[in-house]
Design a protein around this nucleic acid. Sequence first.
DNA 1: TTGACAACATACCGAGTAGTATGTTTTCGT
DNA 2: ACGAAAACATACTACTCGGTATGTTGTCAA
Lengths: 239, 239
Amino acid sequence: MNSAASPKKLKIQPHCLPDGSAVTDAQREILSAAADCFEDQGFAATSIDDVARRLSATKGMIYHHFRSKTDLFFEVYRRGMELNFAAVHPYAEGTGTALVRLTKMSIAHSIVLMEEQAFQRVLMQGVLMHQQGATTAAQRETLEELIDNRNAYEAVFREAIEATGDELNLDIADSSLASKSYLAVLNSTVNWYTPREKDSEHERMAITCDLVAFALRGIGAEMPHEDLIRLEKTEIGKE
Amino acid sequence: MNSAASPKKLKIQPHCLPDGSAVTDAQREILSAAADCFEDQGFAATSIDDVARRLSATKGMIYHHFRSKTDLFFEVYRRGMELNFAAVHPYAEGTGTALVRLTKMSIAHSIVLMEEQAFQRVLMQGVLMHQQGATTAAQRETLEELIDNRNAYEAVFREAIEATGDELNLDIADSSLASKSYLAVLNSTVNWYTPREKDSEHERMAITCDLVAFALRGIGAEMPHEDLIRLEKTEIGKE
DNA sequence: TTGACAACATACCGAGTAGTATGTTTTCGT
DNA sequence: ACGAAAACATACTACTCGGTATGTTGTCAA
């Protein structure tokens, strides 16, 4: 089914820095605070002091763990992609029909998106940053790698969509375009969703259900409502 | 059909500043250059000197026409919304079935989006800016107004989608969510589309066709492919 | 001609910021 | 216990940028 060109092993090993060293608790806290700041103010408007203040720490502490502001941003990006892969990958390789697998992937994606909004918004900024131009050569290289990562993620969905298309004899002219549209629907929440204090889990499930149904119809597939609910329940259970 | 709560007159009068004064050529050039800069680098990373340099002018010239960097951004945003309204409005009030009207609106939206990418990206940034928080009280007020404008735009689509739902007896649970998903598909191009030098018009038409078909299926509607092409041809003709 | 105003250009200031250099404390292997 | 390295904190520098104050040039009505 996914026998197509995908020699790319998805590396889901525990989080580590590019140099291979492990991530300490302190670094994880920095990444989280940085993600919040980048979400609130964007990359350019966020100062290292902002991040430090959010941690009740100092600039020196940040620079002890990360070489530069750009590096910090990249690590936040990497962490965000990791969250997505970790959530979706099990279902991409799981059992069941292609349609069921795609549906589970979509539910997992939508939920992790709403739960980790800060990281997700950083991903968007990363894409934007790519269209512009990172300064140094080393940074460009890192950024390329991150974008590759994102493309690989999209490819996972594209293959699942293609498999579903084959399975149901759907007429999908351009699977690349279809996957972009498909993910655009699932990703749309980052632009407007803000969790309410109460009942946020139920709320998220309802939204996810609607979004996935919309996206599936978009590629021509249908998933009965009660089946969607059932899949979603099992999905949430895993969390 | 759109008898629902929409007392809001869409103001499409020729472009003018908030104080009512007309826009000069110089101001239009500044707006265009600023849109390019904001697209390339984002609001925070763009300096007034950057905009001036792109015009081979000076900072003083910019500040002669706009009170502040934020004001300039708001005007770019306003101009972007204006372009969208101008493109879509005729079809929202046009003739034909609800499905045909919605389709025409979608085509127009998709095309203006690809043609005026710089302004469209600024719109996205404006939404992001709203989620964060503009500094001064006056700026917040202006931003609220701009967001209202955007919501009004979304409402135009929501009403068209509701009308189509009534017409075709579609099962649209949450029309607000549906319109957000719908527009997310059409808007997705700003994140990846870059025009090729040759044949860009044909390319844009093909993409638009696919996107609109996807979005329509998303709400449960079907538009035969040849009909879509035909509508698109008449649409382009207007340009 | 002139004076008044618009349309710029130039010079400058103050606030903020990425990054560094260096000092201080905590941890930990031996 | 102790020395060394890790894990911070503090102080400082060089630089950018938004905004302003002020100077210069063109335009045009009276």
